[in-house]
Design a protein around this nucleic acid. Structure first.
Length: 226
DNA sequence: CGGTCGATACACT
DNA sequence: GTGTATCGACCGT
C-alpha cells in the first residue's frame, strides 16, 4: 500500500487495474489507447479504434461458445487465464496472427481482440510489414492487419503489453462517440448473442468493414455496417 | 463498392 | 479429419 502520495489530487487508476475488469466494460476505455511495440526493426504505435470482447468459461450467465476458452484451458489459450494486460496472440487460417489484450482478474480468461487501429508512429515499418496496404488507413484496419503492422506473432503470446518492448497508454479522456454491435466472423451463438461484443469509435475510417460470420447469414440487412 | 473464393497450417476432437 | 476471432485478388455492378 503506500505512503508516498502527496495527498490531494485524485490519482489515475493504474492501467492493469483498469484492464482487470469485464472486457465489455473495459472496451470503451481501451478505444483510443496507443499500443507500442519496439523491435530491432524499429517502433510501431497503433491507436486502437475497434475491439471485440471474448469471455471465459467462468461466465455461466453469458456463455461464450465463440471464445477460444469456451472449452477450458489449452496450451494455446493459456495466456487468457493469466493476468490482465498480457497479450494473447493466436495463428489462424494458416497465415494470419490476431492479438488480444487479456482482461479480468487472473483465472477468468477473458480478453479483447484488437480488431483495428490507426498507425500513429512507424508508418514506414508498418508498410514494410504490410506491403499490400494501399493507404495509411488500411495499415491496421483488421485484426490480422493490426497484428502484422505491430510485428506480433505467437512468439509474443503471453508477454506483458505493459512492459518493454511493449507499452500501452490509455487515453486521457474516454472516446466521445462509441458504437457497439454484433461480432465479426464468429459463427453460431457466439456471434448472435443479444448483448454487444464489438465496440468501435464511431465514424473512424480505420474501423474494419463489417462482415457477417460465414455460413447461415441472415438475409436482409443487419445493423450498421461499418 | 460489394460479393465470392482460394490460400494455408495449426489446434483441437 | 475438421474448422478456423482473415485477407486480398478477382470480377460484376
Amino acid at each position: 500500500m503506500n505512503a508516498s502520495q502527496p495527498t490531494g489530487a485524485p490519482q489515475p487508476t493504474p492501467v492493469r487495474e483498469v484492464l482487470s475488469a469485464d472486457p465489455r466494460y473495459v472496451a470503451p476505455l481501451l478505444l483510443g489507447a496507443v499500443l507500442t511495440h519496439k523491435s530491432p526493426a524499429g517502433t510501431v504505435s497503433v491507436r486502437i479504434t475497434e475491439v471485440e470482447a471474448y469471455l471465459g468459461p467462468h461466465d455461466s450467465l453469458h456463455p461464450d461458445p465463440g471464445s477460444h476458452t469456451f472449452r477450458g484451458l489449452t496450451p494455446r489459450n493459456a495466456p487468457m487465464f493469466g493476468p490482465a494486460g498480457h497479450l494473447y496472440v493466436y495463428f489462424t487460417y494458416g497465415m494470419h496472427y490476431c492479438a488480444n489484450i487479456v482482461c479480468g482478474p487472473e483465472g477468468v480468461a477473458s480478453a479483447l481482440l484488437l480488431r483495428a487501429g490507426e498507425v500513429v508512429a512507424g508508418q514506414d515499418l508498418a508498410l514494410a510489414r504490410r506491403p499490400a496496404s494501399k493507404t495509411a488507413v488500411d495499415l491496421a484496419s483488421g485484426p490480422a492487419r493490426l497484428a502484422t503492422a505491430l510485428g506480433l506473432t505467437t512468439a509474443d503470446s503471453g508477454r506483458d503489453a505493459l512492459k518493454a518492448p511493449f507499452a500501452l497508454e490509455l487515453p486521457a479522456t474516454p472516446a466521445s462517440a462509441i458504437s457497439a454491435g454484433p461480432r465479426v466472423g464468429v459463427a453460431g451463438a457466439g456471434g448472435t448473442h443479444e448483448y454487444p461484443w464489438r465496440f468501435w469509435m464511431t465514424g473512424d475510417p480505420t474501423v474494419s468493414r463489417y462482415k457477417a460470420a460465414k455460413s447461415k447469414a441472415i438475409t436482409g440487412k443487419s445493423a450498421s455496417t461499418q
